[in-house]
């Protein structure tokens, strides 16, 4: 996949994604989101705009949310990355995913992976966020289906259920 374009260099990188170590070769221009999707086959991370506005490609790099369309794969060399595929364990949904399901916080599901990771990060730092804090935290993740309120409810519910795991 990582084609070498003329006059450019390729890099070997190591990355731990959802706990699994990878050693891959990439062209420097390859965006992290394309690396995850095309090279590692982790298609749960979605591409919505590729200019950093919609938040659909949000993943965690070393525990911090980033736009995977605004980061080169080479920049994540040595990093630990978490994608939506890393939330559920052995077929059991994460409490946040359960809360999204229970509170109908998704419709088409396209923004959902990015939204989940943003919410996951929020609950790591704020155990009991108020609705306004939740809205502020997810304002960088566009959703065109839900009108957001069920997402806010779900995140609150997950927080109440101690959904930081």
């Amino acid at each position: 996949m990582a084609r070498r374009a003329r006059g450019t260099n390729v890099r070997e990188i190591e990355m731990k994604v959802n706990g699994i170590a990878y050693h891959e070769t990439v062209e420097p221009r390859r965006l992290l989101v394309d690396f995850l999707r095309d090279q590692l086959g982790l298609t749960g991370t979605h591409i919505g705009c590729e200019h950093g506005v919609c938040g659909a490609c949000t993943v965690l790099v070393d525990g911090q949310s980033v736009r995977a369309c605004l980061m080169l794969a080479v920049q994540a060399d040595g990093a630990e990355v978490t994608t939506v595929e890393g939330l559920a364990r052995d077929g059991k949904l994460h409490p946040l995913q359960e809360a999204f399901w229970e509170h109908h916080a998704l419709q088409c599901g396209f923004c959902t992976p990015g939204m989940l990771l943003t919410a996951y990060e929020l609950l790591q730092t704020n155990r009991k966020p108020e609705p306004d804090a939740i809205r502020d935290a997810i304002a960088g993740n566009l959703c065109r289906c839900t009108g957001y309120q069920n997402i806010v409810t779900a995140i609150q519910a997950a927080a109440q259920a101690g959904g930081r795991a």
């Binding site: 939506v84 595929e85 939330l87 949904l93 995913q97």
Partner: peptide, 18 residues
Amino acid sequence: RRLEDPKLLAGEARYIDD
């Protein structure tokens, strides 16, 4: 609860780009 949701939540749904 929707039947559609588990695969969407887990990143298992197949959209066109997948």
